[in-house]
């Protein structure tokens, strides 16, 4: 199975750059377009995932395991960040009865 994968592998690094750029852009557009805080949060997760994919691709490209270890650490930090962020969302909802981000503009200017 591994030999088959290695023999047939012929995808250029440019394809991964294109894919990750498109994914990151979709995440940025999600942050800019939506007003629901949970969907904004999911868009941020999508941006993290696109960067993870590009890191893994470059790690294989350079035959260096450090990139994949770095992806592992990014996943660890993302898990901690999601726990704290969702707790913040629950607290905001408890206080204001909404998670519309346009109501959370006290720190905007």
């Amino acid at each position: 199975m591994e030999n088959i994968v290695s023999q047939l592998q012929s995808i250029s690094i440019n394809s991964y750059i294109w894919l990750s750029s498109i994914l990151f852009t979709i995440g940025v557009m999600g942050v800019l377009i939506r007003r629901n805080a949970i969907v904004v949060f999911m868009s941020i997760e999508m941006m993290l995932n696109s960067v993870n994919l590009l890191l893994a691709a470059f790690s294989v490209y350079h035959n260096d395991p450090s990139g994949q270890v770095y992806v592992f650490f990014i996943m660890v930090v993302a898990a901690a960040e999601v726990a704290v962020g969702l707790a913040l969302l629950v607290m905001i909802y408890r206080n204001t009865q909404t998670i519309d981000i346009n109501f959370l503009n006290k720190l905007k200017w």
Binding site: S6, Q9, I11, S12, I13, Y16, A57, V60, Y61, N63
Partner: peptide, 9 residues
Amino acid sequence: IDNAPVQNF
């Protein structure tokens, strides 16, 4: 960047 395939090792 050069258009090399990802896995050639």
